[in-house]
Design a protein around this nucleic acid. Sequence first.
DNA 1: GTGAAAGCGCTAACAC
DNA 2: GTGTTAGCGCTTTCAC
Lengths: 345, 345
Amino acid sequence: MTDTAPRPTLEAVAARAGVSRATASRVVNGGDGVREPLVARVRRAVEELGYVPNQAARSLVTKRHDAVAVVIAEPETRVFADPFFALQLRGISKELTAHDNQLVLLLVEGRDDHARVGRYLAGGHVDGALVFSLHLDDPLPGLIQHAGVPTVFGGRPDWSGGRSEALYVDCDNREGAREAVRHLTGLGRTRIAHITGPLDQTSAADRLDGFRDMMADADPQLVVESDFTPAGGERAMRELLERRPDLDAVFAANDLTAAGALRVLRESGRRVPEDVAVIGFDDVLPVAEQTEPPLTTVRQDIEEMGRLMARLLLRRLGHRAVAEDAEGAPSSVVLPTTLVRRASA
Amino acid sequence: MTDTAPRPTLEAVAARAGVSRATASRVVNGGDGVREPLVARVRRAVEELGYVPNQAARSLVTKRHDAVAVVIAEPETRVFADPFFALQLRGISKELTAHDNQLVLLLVEGRDDHARVGRYLAGGHVDGALVFSLHLDDPLPGLIQHAGVPTVFGGRPDWSGGRSEALYVDCDNREGAREAVRHLTGLGRTRIAHITGPLDQTSAADRLDGFRDMMADADPQLVVESDFTPAGGERAMRELLERRPDLDAVFAANDLTAAGALRVLRESGRRVPEDVAVIGFDDVLPVAEQTEPPLTTVRQDIEEMGRLMARLLLRRLGHRAVAEDAEGAPSSVVLPTTLVRRASA
DNA sequence: GTGAAAGCGCTAACAC
DNA sequence: GTGTTAGCGCTTTCAC
């Protein structure tokens, strides 16, 4: 254990500046109501001593932590294949950093790990939580609700029960899906298949709904459920080709799925987009730009969504610097999507 | 702001159990030296009240935080394309969780952001740090050294200056590279190219060294520097094909690079592995299994490396439960690699 | 506007 | 073994 010199305390700063601890504290916290000369002296003392406030002591009295938990409720491997989460994290990190909040990462490690996360959240160690990738049966929202931790969800949570006051950030999955199908039909395609995501997630369910909006009387055989992974996309595509070898387009629920589908189509000797047009969802660059051919896809601004989640939470927490640029109570946001044309459709 | 009921304090627990605060504290912290009946009573009180220790109050006196910072010093986009970091995070998270430590994620947001991270680390908000993907000119090690925060690095840091006491976890990049080349020569290939990673990172430099160990008198034209990204791999592969259209094998410094190279090779009409054998490094499944053809690669156990980093740090911090299963001072570890044969070589 | 003083909830000596 | 007590470093009334 390194024997670090003890950090200077506020006391030391106050002494050096020749003021009381109270005044030093005021300056450190913005300096409102302290006369200029004193402010300057304290600032200089802080500088010279390299003073950094002790967050524990501060939290003890303020009951705030300036820390937010990011919960990734995906025990499975998806998180580790999809740049999606990394991008959201980036957006979240930027926003939190800009407002001096720390990011405590909570990865759900398995089926039985929700309790631990719930306990942590209930423990009041963080001011709020940002929660991702809930599935329908997830116990987390319940635990969170119970713990009373201010929370913003990534993606519309579906507690069909109600509790519509839940704050979330999502993209317009349904309209995005419609746009994808519209594009395909615009290309003259008529036998359009859809490979869904896991339907216990609202994002996947909404995209399916959007697909159906446009293809109300399509052959139900043309829809197959999958899981947002490339391997799942491959399996689904094989199934689809078996059922309807004459299909001429595929709308995959995300880019990873599309990548898998593309591979199977190539194996089967079909040309993309000539024989089969393919369109994805997300526009995760490392995937969409790297497929063969590059993927036409529905773009959502993932990093921005992360940023918005953080901002919403900070507002909810009454963070001044964030609250001022928007009036009224924070409310959920649904971002629009845009179609990005590349070569696959 | 939700008006949560104030959390019960130790005081409340003690009162309910009919003991002093000190005894209640002892029980909460393991219960050593407290007689059984009392232990039970306190435990019950904790249970009934739903008591959770106030971490801020605890830290204030213990000067420990049971929290570790994970610093990702990659301002660029690589983090978001490569499942590498996500996998390490997973390993780290598991180990930290197992020992009741929290993970505070610090993403370096840009070229000028090191100072912020340094300040945070110096602020004594965490007990230690886990630091990734340093580049040669990175100011972070200096800042960390200065701050005196116990740290374990992911990948051997290169401060050619010395300070060999730095703790790190790495895989045997050099021997792994040798193994890759050995495999290629074993396949009868003689004109073997190498696409490196960014050579200001030791992992990339070590792999290059390993390559040179085996190919001492190869045409220097056969080595081209790249950046661990698919796009970089493509560029490098094009360059290589221009310089030496007769090459018959490529050792790419990581899987992502190999994926890019594969694409260019295909475009150029070459068959893999018949015309050109390709081998990667990492064995990141979502990449290596999904390339066309599936990638032969040098595997490193990324998640395990994450776990080891966390364990090492915890030991360094004197964490009891971790210290006991290994004697002596913790020291850096270099894990072996293994060759995974798939179709590309 | 500034300072004095009272804790925030907890652990760790130190008595008993 | 168990209780008493003294802070940890900070913010925040409340006087002045």
